[in-house]
Design a protein around this nucleic acid. Structure first.
Lengths: 257, 257
DNA sequence: CGCCGCATTGACGTTCGTCAAGTCTAGTGG
DNA sequence: CCACTAGACTTGACGAACGTCAATGCGGCG
């Protein structure tokens, strides 16, 4: 059985408009099949029409290419249409830290608002496509469409809450717990996008996983191997099948005493 | 010499209005001396007047008391007027993680926007006072006052960027670096509020510092002791004097090779 | 004055990082 | 189509950093 992943046969058809020239395509959120992931729900038809004004263009980003770089001027937020990204910051001494992995329907670029410049790199882990949403347009429209204003606030708040969770993970969990949390989170997000609950393809290297989880790549590899020994997952390179989800959850939440 | 701290003789006089009844005092941002810390700058007089509508009341919070609890319904953001808070989340198994320490002029409660419920506890580390800013009022007004809208976005983005920094710290720094970063950050923020560049009073326990930095309290204590041995700081209980700021900075950023 | 919470310090153990060797796979070019 | 190579991954041996456990010290408050 072939693992379904974000880039393999998507549960939603990939395109909703007829074929066009690759760059600077005019697009509409109103009939985008990812709408329920990245846009507010319960909009009036008139509002929905206005929301379409937000997305200026789409942009394709090839594997290993950056959507934006640290230091670059901030102009837009990006909604991921297809593909997977990592965001990472780099310390002065060269150490870098993956701050997140983002997939279809998720928004990147929020870090740039405060200083008008991006403070991290966003790099595609596979060939990807994003909707470019100029931020001044978002601000303008969210003054008029209350639901959009609320939605923007929620997206930012959600990111803050997510990061709190990562801080808990990095601050107080052991390697096995970190990896278990990571796998469960990934598979849950993929499932929300119509993919398998038990199979996934890692789009990132062991080193990138390690960077995100505050571990060295060898520790990630060893911990995965231990999960395999314990019959919790089956691993073949980047293909992971969760064999015993309960055991995996018990690593995170040991049975109450 | 007595260390100046957030609660000792403040560089700005504590009150800007005549004495009133302790709870539910009507207040004005327009003549608050913390304005440049928590409000947008460059407002028109008319806008400034409208901003005053945001703060509904003030609220005093005693040491160890919570401003809000995890799970509580979210209604308002809070601007700290005096005092210091910690925010912390608790995992199912009881472990908890301090996600930040906040002081005068900083905003807490952003975590609650996404789900309409707070996802962390905010606890005063000393007797404190906050301005209560009902969020629906903020949203309403920020539809009309562009500078406020932009400001709200920046505050949230700033929190996201701050947390990226904490992730870097937790994910890849050693105990000495973490503590050095922590002390430098604290003293820098206090300095921005008119306090000493070299002296501070820790309002939190070693355990709380450890929780924030992903270390055990013993490690915090030992690392502080090492800093004292190395002539970097002088410590007496919670009073810390930075003796050699350069050495402290060199722990974070070792000289380039 | 005595108690209690907080902090310090030491001895020891565990976890994870480091270094190194070796394997596997996907991608490239002949 | 196949051989080659570079990058990714695995595994082992060892060591360092930090956690754990425990004893003790110190200060503030009732």
């Amino acid at each position: 059985m072939k693992a379904t992943t974000c880039s393999d046969a998507a549960p939603f058809p990939a395109g909703t408009e007829p074929p066009m020239t690759p760059e600077t395509i005019k697009v509409a959120c109103s009939n985008c099949n990812l709408r329920e992931l990245c846009m507010p729900v319960g909009l009036q038809p008139a509002e929905l029409e206005r929301i379409d004004e937000i997305v200026a263009t789409r942009r394709k980003v090839k594997r290993r290419e950056a959507l934006f770089h640290n230091g670059e001027r901030f102009t837009s937020l990006y909604a991921i249409r297809t593909g997977v990204f990592k965001t990472c910051i780099t310390a002065e001494d060269g150490r870098d830290q993956v701050t997140g992995f983002q997939m279809a329907g998720e928004i990147i670029g929020l870090d740039g608002i405060v200083s008008e410049h991006h403070t991290c790199d966003a790099v595609a882990l596979e060939d990807s496509e994003v909707c470019v949403m100029p931020f001044d347009r978002i601000e303008e429209l969210s003054r008029e469409v209350t639901a959009l204003q609320r939605h923007v606030h929620k997206i930012m708040s959600r990111e803050i809450v997510r990061e709190h969770g990562v801080m808990l993970l990095l601050g107080s969990m052991r390697a096995e717990e970190r990896l278990a949390v990571f796998l469960l989170n990934l598979v849950q997000r993929l499932h929300a996008r119509g993919f398998s609950q038990s199979e996934l393809v890692l789009r990132m290297t062991r080193e990138e996983i390690g960077s995100y989880l505050g571990l060295k790549l060898e520790t990630v590899s060893r911990t995965l191997s231990k999960f395999v020994e314990d019959g919790i997952v089956a691993v073949q390179q980047r293909h992971v099948r969760i064999v015993d989800a309960d055991k995996l959850k018990r690593i995170v939440n040991p049975p109450a005493c």
